[in-house]
Amino acid sequence: MTSTVVVGGFFGDEGKGKIISYLAIKDNPSIIVRGGAGPNAGHTIRDGDRVYKVRMLPSGFLNKNAKVMIGPGVVINPDVLLKEIRDFDASGRSFIDKHCGIIEETHLTRDSKGDLKEKIGSTGSGTGPANADRAMRVLKLAKDFDSLSSLIVDVPEEINSAISKNENVLIEGTQGTFLSLWHGTYPFVTSKDVTASGICADIGLGPKNVDEVIVVFKSYVTRVGTGPLANELTLEQAQSKGWSEFGTVTGRQRRAADFDFDLARRAIMLNSATQISITKLDVIFPSCAGMTSYDNLPEEAKSFIQNIERELNIPVTIIGTGPAIDDVIDRRS
């Protein structure tokens, strides 16, 4: 039984939602718990004919046997959370900590104007202003709202108790390493640290209780909004490669570049990664679409994976080969 932390290695949009959903079903954890900044992060999950766009609930909610939780370090928009619980059939198994901060209308207003919107390219979700108010110790918490009382549990106690009982716990990060307030391309970053250490702090998990850290890299790099992006392709070049994408929360065009080994090395260092997940291999190599066996991959795709392992000195254990949850090659022993 293990505790596994999953975080993004680039600028978000790496496909964490799909990987977490796969792990949630494959490894059948008793708890799936989310850290991160707030509803400014969006994950897209495709299960059969249905597509889910998730902003608050952990992406592993499709495992109906697992409890899904949000750690005390996350700020919550109650309207978004309650709608997702209702729409995604997660009632009775969704929980938050009493110390989760609450986004109110004033935060949405502040986030939709000024430097946050014009310079940083904020999502307008209210996440940044809410986290700023938390730093100033004026933010209201979940315990202050009767409408949330039925969802409240002691999240750190729940997850540490599960680990002590040798149950699987899956810890979900949001955004990507280089959107971290501490380690990213400041000021074009989110309002918190979102490396593995920050995510664990968000949920109340100490470093000695982490078994595995999976860093998710897309087969190429994308970034939504402003901020530096090394070797950025033109929109026409990205479209010609089939790399034209749009953000889950904002719907904005994602900027694109080739896989960045320098960023990847630093992400591995900052997150103490033990495994790598590579997503969207099928976008780079269309003949890989839907494959579930590494042995069946064409040689050029195997070479791509082998080069990543050689350059980064970390095993690539989980490979995404399509948008569906089970479009995965799982190389874990």
Rank of each mutant, 00 (worst) to 15 (best):
N166K: 13
F188K: 00
A201S: 14
E118F: 14
I152V: 13
I103F: 03
V155L: 11
G173D: 00
I203E: 02
E167W: 05
L116S: 14
C200S: 10
R137D: 14
E167D: 15
Y186C: 08
T177V: 07
P156A: 15
L116N: 13
H107S: 09
T109A: 10
Y186N: 09
L108H: 07
S125W: 00
G124H: 02
T106L: 12
E118D: 15
G121D: 11
L116M: 15
I171F: 02
I103L: 07
A132H: 06
A162W: 01
Q175P: 01
G173I: 01
H107R: 08
A135V: 10
G101T: 03
L139A: 10
A142L: 09
L139V: 06
D202I: 06
F178V: 03
E104L: 15
D144K: 12
D133M: 06
I120A: 12
T174D: 00
S180Q: 05
V138T: 14
C200P: 07
A132Q: 11
F188G: 00
S197F: 11
N160H: 07
A162P: 06
S150P: 01
G124T: 02
T127P: 05
I102V: 15
V189A: 05
E158H: 08
G176C: 03
K165H: 09
F188W: 12
P187K: 10
K119I: 15
L108F: 10
V189F: 07
E157W: 11
K143F: 13
P129Q: 08
I171K: 01
G173V: 01
K143N: 11
T174Y: 00
A130I: 04
L151K: 00
E158Q: 15
C200D: 07
R110M: 12
G128I: 10
I199D: 01
D144Q: 11
T123Q: 05
G184T: 05
L151F: 06
E105P: 03
I120C: 12
I103M: 06
P187C: 11
D202C: 11
D111F: 01
R134L: 10
T177D: 02
V169N: 04
G173L: 01
R110W: 03
T174M: 01
G114L: 08
S125R: 05
S125C: 08
T195N: 12
G126I: 03
H99F: 14
K119H: 12
L148W: 04
G101M: 06
S180H: 03
D115P: 15
D97R: 08
G176R: 00
A196K: 02
D97P: 09
S191M: 13
L108I: 15
K192C: 10
G124A: 03
C100V: 08
S180G: 05
L151M: 04
I163Y: 00
C200W: 05
F145K: 14
